[in-house]
Amino acid sequence: MLSNTSMLLYVLVTAAAVIMTRGFTFLLFPAGKQTPKVILFLGQALPCALMALLIVYCLKNTSPLLYPYGLPEAIAIAAVILLHLWKKNNLLSIAGGTAFYMILVQFVF
């Protein structure tokens, strides 16, 4: 185990790295100056693209080649999408989809 002092230093080093990544962009393009148009364009186009990346990130350890072939994920994702298109209620889609997925992985597959 690390001593309290080392642990404190370790946590602060970790925190410093995280805050540097979060603040980097804002330091590079300060609010007082005109932000380049290409950066504004990226800022607008990125949310949709990054949401796709986050979804893939969540599923990165799902293997379509090994049992259960990613079936629970595929079925639950379809359920979330259908529920969301139908009821348009974020909470319901998220809670319903997750409960459904838990049933699938705990009892079905």
Binding site: T21, T25, F26, T35, P47, L50
Partner: peptide, 11 residues
């Protein structure tokens, strides 16, 4: 990845 999140939050 947070560097890229910042881009959408500048405005």
């Amino acid at each position: 990845r947070h560097i890229f999140y910042g881009l959408s939050m500048l405005e």
